[in-house]
Design a protein around this nucleic acid. Structure first.
Lengths: 336, 336
DNA sequence: TTGTACGCGTTATCAA
DNA sequence: TTGATAACGCGTACAA
């Protein structure tokens, strides 16, 4: 074990430079010596030491993937596709689940920098903050060291690249479909006030406003990602006597909660209540009826994110801002 | 950028040895010089080079996590908990999604070894093979280099540690509950012939046999992890006129498919058909009615896996074989 | 086409 | 308590 380049060079009767050349395959080496070296490597079961290589080249071809919570269905998909895509370029992925705490996010980002990753992908919209106490300087600063790609987040700063879904338009179009089905009382339930979260909300508002609809404040509500939260909130509205005939959501889990509500209140879906989910996750296939859902294209988003990052790392120009169009997948919680 | 230990030593007016000592905090350094060094570090914004450290110590405190598919709900949870747990010990996680192909698994395992990770966790039962063409030598060989922990897999070999759930007993108990509810025609649908998969199946068989029940071959069936697969297979049985009154499964997705079947055939759950899922995933909360499901304790499994690995890495004794007891979570697809 | 020698930034060993 | 210096194993400029 722990054979090094010297052992190989000795066995092959050449210098370490030649072994290195064979290893990296670029420089000219004669057929004969190449064979000798390769044989020696095989006999010794030699594996180059990645730490030494990393030290010399100052890279170990590693990308840091940060997300709030990789067990979340959407983020799990993102992480999966990101890893697969990075692997194609021979990059390793270091996973970092930060949770929602601001200081944790900050510390983990610094941790990744100290590991000297070649780039960082922030998966999910929850990294860009918009509050008075917290700001995004930690991301902007990190980007001075390595390129940073935001998947479903937006930040206009040097060496930061954004890959996003057209959330606003997607929700706008979906809401318009509901309006065209002569719904006026459309509840909007969402889980996040992130950049992407607010875009979705804007899409809803735009459609509502354009149709000249005014709704009480209770009709839009920030709720947790638990199925029961959405169910309970709709029950609350129902008990208050506030009539609604459609629910637009920012996540399938909320839509699943809306379906639960309907079941417990004898409300027929889609006849009495139409529901639209978001992310087109496996949840949309579990509910009864199955959810109409907006496909936010995680796979495309992830592959685009990696492709942008690879371009940047190889010194090519890359778009600072990429947008991918969502689809609406029609199932049985809507009539259209 | 790229300040090194020499820069710090110069600024602080000490030798690099002293800087290193301050950095690692073990050896004796006087209060005064320590302060000088720490100040110099801060002023220069020094970060130790992990590659150089890795080269010297021959470790970068990194664990490889392999899984078939990190977007699978169960594995996504496993990966999440593993990463969180490893982080507590200051280990990084390199994620590797291999897919089901044998050669891929093999190659990825070798890849991780070549990256010189300190240990490898194989998450999910699908790594240990039991076929004539394929065997588990690749894992056994890898274990000669680094400790390997199997989460939900079993292999009796040197430097390989198994952490498992008592799948057989869990399914046995659950099936007995169904039998006690005077069900005789219990279908068993499963997704995998892995070690863990076969244990579950054995649990079902044991309960059935003990009760003196004999069932046609069609009553146990290997089907895909798609909700529609299970639904379609049950439809096939139904159309063939084979009556069944309960479905035991090896995964919530199959159970969700069974619920789907019931919806499309006017079968009442749990009155006409009882269904039990496995893994107690978010799916079990989405279906209508919600799934009774076996909680296979991913979190405990993951934390146990990491704890075993950490013990091994620190030279302590560790159990070769750990077993964690599953729970059954009763919801509305069963009567008991 | 091949070989020599140095640099990469640590940690660790030995003297002082 | 501190300092000088040798590893660690690779890539590569330069020389041959």
């Amino acid at each position: 074990m722990n054979i090094n380049i010297y052992d190989v060079s000795k066995k092959a009767g050449v210098s370490i430079a030649t072994v290195s050349r064979v290893l990296n395959g670029n420089a000219k080496v004669s057929e004969k010596t190449r064979d000798k070296v390769i044989n020696a490597m095989k006999e010794l079961d030699y594996t180059p030491n990645v730490f030494a290589r990393g030290l010399g080249l100052n890279t170990m071809k590693t990308i840091g993937i940060m997300c709030i919570d990789s067990s979340d269905i959407y983020l799990a998909n993102a992480v999966y596709y990101l890893e697969q895509e990075l692997r194609k370029y021979n990059y390793d992925s270091i996973l970092c689940c930060t949770g929602k705490d601001y200081n944790n996010k900050k510390n983990y980002l610094e941790l990744l920098l100290s590991k000297r990753v070649d780039g960082i992908i922030l998966a999910g919209s929850q990294f860009v903050e918009n509050t008075s106490e917290h700001n995004n300087d930690y991301i902007i600063n990190a980007a001075k060291d390595v390129p940073i790609v935001l998947v479903n987040g937006y930040l206009d700063a040097d060496n930061i690249y954004s890959v996003m879904c057209n959330d606003e338009e997607a929700v706008y179009n979906a809401t318009k479909l509901l309006i065209n089905n002569s719904h006026r009382n459309i509840v909007y339930l969402y889980t996040s006030t992130s950049y992407s979260g607010m875009n979705k909300y804007r899409g809803y508002l735009k459609a509502i406003n354009e149709a000249g609809i005014t709704l009480p404040d209770e009709f839009h509500h920030l709720c947790g990602k638990n199925i029961s939260h959405a169910r309970d909130y709709l029950t609350y509205l129902y008990d208050k006597g506030m009539k609604f005939d459609a629910v637009m959501t920012s996540d399938d889990s909320i839509a699943a909660g809306a379906v639960k509500f309907a079941h417990t209140h004898g409300t027929r879906i889609p006849e009495d209540l139409e529901v639209i989910g978001y992310n087109n996750s496996v949840l949309s296939l579990c509910t009864e009826p199955e959810l109409t859902s907006i496909d936010s294209k995680v796979e495309e988003l992830s592959s685009c994110a990696v492709s942008v990052l690879m371009k940047v790392l190889s010194g090519e120009d890359a778009d600072n801002h990429s947008i991918i169009a969502a689809d609406i997948i029609k199932r049985n919680t809507t009539i259209f």
